[in-house]
Write a protein that binds this DNA or RNA. Structure first.
Lengths: 241, 241
DNA sequence: CTTGACCCTCCCCTTGGAGGAGTCTGTACA
DNA sequence: TGTACAGACTCCTCCAAGGGGAGGGTCAAG
């Protein structure tokens, strides 16, 4: 039912994590509803890579269950966040590869890294790496940073804001969103583009039908493309009248 | 830099997964940029729980990198999906616990499970569980089903489909979505409502501005309200001409 | 009465490292 | 210049969380 193997049940029996509620004469392990429920809890924790011993401890303690679950939820959400970061890194990796660039080694480990340590290590190791391999990471990082033009950076920041608004349940027509869009358009218009509110709405709508853009946006946050389109349309409508 | 331990590097050296580009006279392992990049790939795969042997194989084969990365992305998205399902299960678990209900054992393992096997197992095991523990899973499911009226059930099923389509990246204008909406409207119209495509689009749009409905939909799946609205509008537009 | 699908126990194997013992290097400070 | 201290080296054992397989029992169906 739960998909765990017999071996796993043996193991859990052996280590006392999940005991059968009865054993038949033939030695078969029998499990009831209570055991099923306990198994569910075990699987939740296991999904979080808790060691079985820890799981046993947590289940024996058994403070109110609700708090157990709430805690698990938090951990799962953190994990999901982490996954999303990694997915983003990967997508960047793919994008920069398409443009033939080499990815800068700092971003390369985003999501895996332990950020502060990186910063320290980077400085200390840079000289050594340069001497040893004739490659200067700091230099190349700076070049990358300059290459990645301001506009791309602004766009990324804008999208991050929008995605966060979606996640936190802010309405597409909320004043904050309208302000974000306005600022974004202002920025664009100051940098050589001419984008009206209607253009922007049309563009956002176009994204919904375009594989590349749709995947990019939805990859960042499920529903982002649709939210953006609704927001852009609402902004254009407000502009209109 | 990457956060892996020395021990891990030893291990990778031993199994030939990541060789240092040079070894100093004193026996120190030295790694260069190429190795760093390779390590990044290894860590990506490891994040997906690929066994190291498999990782070695994939890296040796080295078809175009792009397809490797694209494949990784897909796996990550699947994984994210799985996590989301588990989080949902957990939230349901918490909700039903608050109401003091016992969760039905089918839903209890959603996200962990192997769906088809469940269906088979359920039927076969039901009688046994009933005999053994006086608890009839099918019966309780049926009671639930009857309590929940048919229309609510259809609506829930419809929303689940839509949410899944959103998660799996199906376009709002996809034929499948259009079909789903049509069926939903047909059902509604057969049950005493009169809902045109335009009505439906207007209703979906109304949800975007209504706190109650917005929270309900977004609670089920981030972006669902916006996706639904886009889909309904697209359906209405198609109907029109 | 057999067959197939399960289950049992017992024992060894595997993966991906972590830990420790004993030793060597490399740099920093006095 | 010596000395300390961090960190690397090799070699070895240990660990978790099961998986595989031998050798054999059980149970419902045909």
């Amino acid at each position: 039912m739960s998909g765990v193997t017999v071996k796993t049940l043996h193991h859990y029996h052996k280590i006392g994590l999940l005991l059968p509620c009865a054993v038949s004469e033939a030695g078969y392990r029998l499990y009831g509803m209570k055991e099923l429920e306990r198994l569910q809890h075990i699987l939740f924790y296991r999904e979080l890579d808790f060691p079985l011993k820890e799981i046993a401890r947590l289940l024996e303690e058994e403070p109110e269950r609700h708090s157990i679950l709430a805690q698990q939820e938090e951990l799962l959400l953190v994990r999901k966040q982490r996954l999303e970061t990694i997915i983003q890194t990967l997508q960047q990796s793919m994008a920069s590869m398409e443009k033939g660039e080499i990815m800068n080694s700092k971003d390369m480990f985003k999501g895996f890294e332990n950020a502060q340590e990186w910063e320290k290590a980077l400085e200390e190791q840079n000289r050594h790496l340069k001497d040893a391999y004739g490659y200067d990471m700091l230099d190349s990082a700076e070049i990358d940073a300059q290459n990645m033009n301001e506009q791309a950076q602004e766009a990324a920041a804008f999208m991050n804001h929008i995605a966060e608004a979606l996640r936190t349940g802010i309405k597409h027509s909320d004043a904050e969103i309208q302000r974000l869009i306005q600022e974004h358009l202002d920025f664009m218009n100051k940098h050589g583009h001419t984008v009206t509110a209607t253009d922007f709405a049309a563009q956002a709508r176009f994204f919904l039908g375009d594989d590349f853009h749709l995947r990019m946006l939805e990859g960042q946050q499920t529903g982002l493309a649709y939210y953006l389109s609704a927001a852009a349309e609402s902004y254009a409508a407000a502009e209109q009248q």
